[in-house]
């Protein structure tokens, strides 16, 4: 009885808001990096997410599939703070409540997101796009006097090499091909060094060869961080391996290996059979 308060005192209260620029904030001591529990989101009466529960382990490569309107993008929006759930909880690691943080704070805490449509800054050069994404202090008064040191330049050069844009560093991002923009965006995510990477249809509009290279890249990246991929292309999902979650009408319909999931009659009915 007497010991209980002192124990509570001894524990440092978790900071609610990580400073912009603070990194690796997620506490993954319990193996799980992302918790979504009973998350419900409604838009004008339409239940985009219906008591969705989903757990992603640290270091996992998870693929989310499901028909249009299953809630895949809404789920991403909840994780990144763009949409607030009506009910339910969303945690990044043990301590960071995603439903209370802003988009910028969540990004700074270590969740990177690639959008469905490639969104690079078209009036900035490829190099500048990476410079903006580079892990560094995000506060306005710091960026006013920020200079790129050698290590940062090396890091950008390394990523340019990885996404095969070394020859395009000085070009405006708006002049790149669709596939190159997708790759630049992946590069921008990499220099952010996120702990959790969300990829929304990363191979949409890519050629077969680009898709193959992207798969290689994603599998390689999964060695260092957790990745959640939303994708329609089942061949790509198969290529990635890992666990698959099927969403349907805002909730999890099935979860497991791709082959098992494909064999599930409920999944066949709502998704694959059509």
């Amino acid at each position: 009885m007497t010991a209980a308060p002192s124990l509570a005192m001894a524990r440092e209260p978790a900071p609610r808001v990580p400073a912009l620029g603070a990194h690796g904030a997620a506490d993954v001591s319990h193996r799980v990096i992302l918790y979504l529990e009973d998350v419900t989101v409604t838009f004008d009466g339409f239940r985009a997410l219906n008591a969705l529960s989903l757990y992603v382990d640290a270091g996992e490569l998870r693929c989310i599939i499901g028909p249009n309107g299953a809630g895949k993008t809404t789920m991403m929006d909840v994780i990144t703070g763009k949409t607030r759930p009506d009910s339910g909880t969303a945690f990044f690691g043990q301590a960071l409540d995603l439903t209370r943080l802003s988009e910028a704070e969540i990004a700074a805490a270590g969740i990177g997101r690639k959008f469905q449509k490639p969104t690079v800054f078209e009036h900035h050069t490829v190099f500048e796009n990476l410079e903006l994404a580079l892990r560094a202090d995000r506060r306005a008064r710091r960026t006013l006097f920020a200079t790129l040191d050698g290590a940062a330049r090396d890091r950008i050069a390394e990523i340019l090499e990885l996404v095969r844009l070394s020859g395009e560093a000085g070009r405006l991002a708006g002049q790149l091909s669709h596939g190159q923009k997708q790759w630049l965006e992946i590069g921008m995510l990499l220099v952010q060094e996120p702990q959790l990477l969300l990829l929304d249809e990363p191979v949409a509009g890519m050629t077969d060869e680009e898709t193959e290279r992207t798969a290689e890249l994603v599998v390689g990246l999964a060695k260092e961080r957790s990745i959640v991929v939303v994708e329609h292309d089942l061949a790509f999902v198969a290529r990635l391996g890992g666990k698959v979650t099927v969403l349907h009408e805002g909730a999890v319909l099935a979860e497991g290996k791709l082959d098992d999931v494909k064999a599930d009659p409920r999944v066949v009915e709502v998704y694959l059979g059509r």
Partner: peptide, 27 residues
């Protein structure tokens, strides 16, 4: 400055800037 490049990025796509971890408010 880098600040100016963030500012121009906010002009072009404020949401994207936010998802990079910048708070456009202060900029």
């Amino acid at each position: 400055s880098k600040y100016g490049r963030v500012l121009a990025a906010i002009r072009d796509s404020e949401e994207r800037v936010r998802f990079l971890g910048y708070d456009p408010l202060w900029y």
